[in-house]
Design a protein around this nucleic acid. Sequence first.
DNA 1: GCAAGGTC
Length: 856
Amino acid sequence: MRTVLMVAEKPSLAQSIAKILSKGSCSSRKGLNGACSVHDYTGSFQGQQVRFKMTSVCGHILSLDFIGKYNNWDKVDPAELFSQAPTEKREANPKLNMVKFLQVEAKGCDYVVLWLDCDKEGENICFEVLDAIEPVMNKPYGREQTVYRAKFSSITDTDIWKAMNQLGEPNRNEALAVDARQELDLRIGCAFTRFQTKYFQGKYGNLDSSLISFGPCQTPTLGFCVERHDKIQSFKPETYWVIQAKVFKGRDSPLTLDWDRVRVFDREVGQMFVNLAKTSRDARVESVSKKEKAKQRPQALNTVEMLRVASSSLGMGPQHTMQIAERLYTQGYISYPRTETTHYPEAFDLKGTLHQQANNPMWAQEVKALLAAGLNRPRKGSDAGDHPPITPMRAASEAELGSDGWRLYEYITRHFIATVSEDCKYLQTTIDFTIGTEGFSCSGKTLISPGYTAVMPWQGIPLEEALPACERGDVFTVDEIKLLEKQTSAPDYLTEAELITLMEKHGIGTDASIPVHINNICQRNYVTVENGRKLKPTNLGIVLVHGYYKTDAELVLPTIRSAVEKQLTLIAVGKADYRQVLQHTLDIFKRKFHYFVDSIGSMDELMEVSFSPLADSGKPLSRCGKCHRFMKYIQAKPSRLHCSHCDETYSVPQNGVIKLYKELRCPLDDFELVLWTSGSRGKSYPLCPYCSSNPPFRDMKKGVGCNECTHPSCQHSLVSLGIGQCVECEGGVLVLDPTSAPKWRMACNRCNVLVHFFEHAHRVQVAAESCDACEASLVAVDFNKTRTPLPAGDTQHTGCVFCDPLFQDLVELKHAAMRHPSHRGGARRGRGRGRGRRGNPKKPKDKMAALAAYFV
DNA sequence: GCAAGGTC
């Protein structure tokens, strides 16, 4: 029997499609990478009985990058990134081992059916898959077609079966359009980012940003925020005048009317109209209109709308919202949360989905009423052909979901119920008056039936006092007419929800990447999120955007993306040659780049106003080994030391602080050592600023401290202070922290393992001898006379911290507190406490053997 | 250390 391999874009889709095509009869197993599953079943294909294997990738298999040597910022001129620098495709996520996985599954298969998402990216992944599997598949018999593409527009029985019965071929041009986009984004983004980062970081000390990035999506995103900022700044309030009229009838309380002319910008004109109105003491009713109006129920929920509401109503940022939504999805509470579709598939079980919600006290009443009266037909939305809209999949309670999880689930559920509810109906009453020659009116809304606003009360019609009953010809008495002076007010900062709308409108990013771009401009310190999730640009963000405007506004306008997209579409539809479009567009941006470099001065003029030069930044800390003058410590990101006399900058490890280390000097270069520490419960080690930036030994990496220095005799080096191999990580060495007295400890020079020992010792030294049993260096300890733990009041002992029975109870394993919990090993914190060496001692190897790795 | 696009 022949075998047909089928590949979808993600595991969830492979499962749904396999279920449909096998009519529920497939058997499933996990693939070798743990992430993808394979669903097996038999069926007929092109008139023969075959074995089907349905599986998936996880998005793109490959991603584009420059070849290794072009990733060195110090050695490559960013201009080279436009043409000379070769690129290569590497596995996007090596951990997933996707190529290997596909090859294992494809071996011995005769046909492949590509079920990737039906967009350009999906088409591109088709060819990534083919490149991986074609070499291992069975060779075709004669000229028979073996590669098929399924084109589907929704994940429903009908559509999937229709696609299966009308298989086509993958479209090379669409895939090439994506190849072109990848290369353009990479070359352009990296060239501009590297250039402006290096240029400004080498000049200013308080930029507070370790990276000054540029990208065809993130830069226009920032542009929107700064555009609003500029409007606020340039806003000049204007004075205007309105007539306020109050009228009453009988003993009713007065009614405030709106002026038909709304407002005038000239006080005297306003006064003239007041005088004209004041000629009468009566307000005559000209007409009374009553109109029944409806507020439409929402369309089915897609990702972008969910992000907007989460930001504006739940106060949750897009990145956070997507994380929560992913979790709700994997736990089975909601459907797949990344979709552009706002239309339920024809066979969607609206009633069943609603039924699941019938017992939640929050909305049980409305749900039961709907089930009894019959669901309203949902509004027609658009079907992007990706996934069904976001809906709840099963009932849940606040207790099981946690705070933010519940709030998002609650919104998704209320939104779903709203889509099958009636529109909200209300009566709008408008009464038109004349007073003298001037027209006025007042209007009010009264609710007829709440419809969907019963479950989305925040959209409900606010309760108003009813308007008095009256008819044409009635006369009210004028209570008061006066001219009010008012001022136009400035717009507010852009809200995240408005930004999402703008990005969607201009095609900046996709539903999946919009949160990433917004997050980027926050992390790069271009904008801050203020109260009400308003985005306020920082000085840096403002200067960048204004700088682009001054030199080449196209770099920041939203059209930068759409113009390129237009070119790419030409490739996709086969009207333009991939190579030519790529070359042409790269040429344009290369010229833009050179122009930008040549005119960087005009952006720099703006920088100078907001930021201070390196030489004026920071505080004097330690002495330079070359000129012996003080260097300044610049704490702002990226923290570094700067010698203004030599005009040299030395980077120091981030996420910590440095201080002077007893004015001790490095024997190699005479620079004063500094002590780096990651905080009170973190680790600390001495560091030579020069060696750290310019490693003195071939086997030393950049950016490390003396605890990784292989100097054979310096008292601060790994060789002098190293004790034994780390108990947790590969290749790390536990090094005595000479500054840790009186709470002595040693710390791993790779991971965050900390070993506390010898609390009341006044001296701890690493001895020259090593342990006979485990070959770790012996430690000589001199305890405090009054608090020594040694028998018979002894104060001195030399032994192995891992094996010596006298020492064993004095050693405790901990983990350094990191400023960023994502740091290696951080997640394991807490587990290691007290594990010590007693339970399961992993034998530390010879210190010199561990060090051998360093000497090559 | 860089982009944007998939997705886990």
